[in-house]
Each structure stands twice: as C-alpha cells, then as structure tokens.
C-alpha cells in the first residue's frame, strides 16, 4: 500500500477522466442509437440502408481499430482542411478525449440502435389501442404508454451497453488519453510494480461497473413497480 502513496491523486484524476468519457459517450451513444433506430423504422429505403450499413460496420470491426481510425484519420483530415485556408499549418491534432469518446459512442450506439428498435417494436399494439379507445391523444399515447413500455424493455440491454462503454474507455489509453491505464503505465515507470498498478486499475473499473449495475437494478425496480404489484 505504501507503494501507492504518491499515486493516489493521479489515479483519482484518471478515474475522473474515465467518468467524463463515460458520461460524454453515454449522451452521444443514446443520440446515435435513437437516430439509428428511427432510421431503421422509417419507411425510407435509402435511410434504412444507411442505418443498416452503420450497424454492420460498427458491430463487425474491432473497437481498437475504430478508435485508431478516428484518431489518426481525423487528424489527417483536419490538417488537410486547415491547410486549404492556411498553408503554413503543419499539423492539426484532435484531442484523444474526443476522438475516443466519439469512437466508443459510435460502436456502442450501433448496438443501442437494435435495442431501441426492438423496444419500439415490442410495445404491445393492444396497449396503444386501449389508450386510443380511452381517448388519449397521439402525444399522450407516446408519453404515457409507449415510453414507459419501451423503457421497461430497453433497460436490461441498455445496462449492458453502459457496461460496454465504461470498459471501452480503457481502450482510449492506447491513443494517449490520461485515464487510469495511462496513469498506471507512468506509475510502473517509476515504481517497477506492474502487477500492483494494473490491479488498482482493475479495481477502479470494477467499482465503476458495480455502480452502473446497481443503478440499472434500481431503475429496473422503479420501471417495473407497476408490473410487479399484482
């Protein structure tokens, strides 16, 4: 333990970075998932094809490849664009934080697309008809019937998507984001204790996963409280 003495604050700030990446990618992941699901459910053939392409590509490619491609690719593209305006610019870099966040959000968003689509289709037509028979307006049906039923169906897989996101944040250390794995690498450089340091990283991630799992369980209980009371 005394081995870690100088490193607690570094690991703490590394964990803060993990949490930031997680929250930012969570928002983006929901947006990508909803857009993807809306596109797949739309009547437009071309839009459906594009959404299918999105899910096939991001579910069939290793995560690390997407991260590397987005990081190095965006740097090249941005450099090229900015040279059009100012030929003196040598190199434009994209912060690893954003390249990585967008990359993992795109990956997990492709899984969320299927979750949201399935949840939307899983709403029982009978519920909608009953609500309409009771004289609810379209908006009321959407908010009081569709959303609560979708929520219940989507929550368990959505919890898994959140766990994938938190675990994928570790991959962003490969492009130099100063999160916990990156901190561990520095700590190993001075202490020469790789096992200890990586175990600390593992415990930090286990903590994050536990918090997410417990939150999802609580949300599930809340989402199902009307269903159970029978």
């Amino acid at each position: 333990m005394e081995l870690l003495s100088g490193w607690w604050d570094d690991f703490f700030w590394g964990s803060v970075v993990v949490a930031q990446v997680f929250l930012a990618s969570l928002v983006l992941m929901v947006i990508f998932g909803l857009i993807g699901a809306a596109a797949k459910l739309s009547g437009n053939r071309i839009v459906q094809k594009i959404a299918n392409g999105y899910t096939v590509v991001f579910r069939g490619t290793p995560e690390i490849l997407v991260i590397l491609l987005l990081y190095f690719g965006s740097a090249i593209t941005l450099t090229w664009i900015s040279r059009l305006f100012n030929p003196d610019i040598k190199f434009v870099d994209v912060p690893p934080f954003w390249a990585g966040t967008v990359a993992i959000a795109l990956i997990v968003g492709s899984y969320a697309t299927e979750t949201f689509r399935g949840a939307f289709l899983g709403v029982r037509p009978g519920s909608i008809e009953a609500a309409k028979a009771l004289g609810m307006s379209g908006l009321q049906v959407f908010f009081y019937i569709r959303i609560p039923e979708m929520w219940r169906l989507a929550l368990p897989p959505f919890g898994n998507h959140m766990l994938s996101l938190i675990k994928d944040t570790a991959l962003i250390s490969i492009i130099g984001l100063n999160e916990t794995l990156f901190v561990a690498k520095q700590a190993i450089g001075t202490t020469g204790k790789p096992f200890t340091m990586y175990i600390v990283v593992g415990l930090i991630y286990l903590g994050f996963s536990t918090v997410i799992t417990l939150t999802v369980m609580a949300l599930e209980r809340y989402g199902n409280h009307t269903v159970r009371a029978r």
Partner: peptide
C-alpha cells in the same frame, strides 16, 4: 463478476506485464 466487470485490456495487461512481478 470480476471478469465481466473489468476491461479485457486491463486483464491482458495484468497477465502480460503484471505477472512477471510475482
């Protein structure tokens, strides 16, 4: 619980870089 709750990359690093410490 442990193996599903931690990133595979961390598991790889613990085994490859970490084990020689022991």
């Amino acid at each position: 619980y442990v193996f599903r709750g931690t990133p595979i990359l961390v598991q790889i690093f613990i085994i490859y870089y970490g084990f020689p410490q022991l």
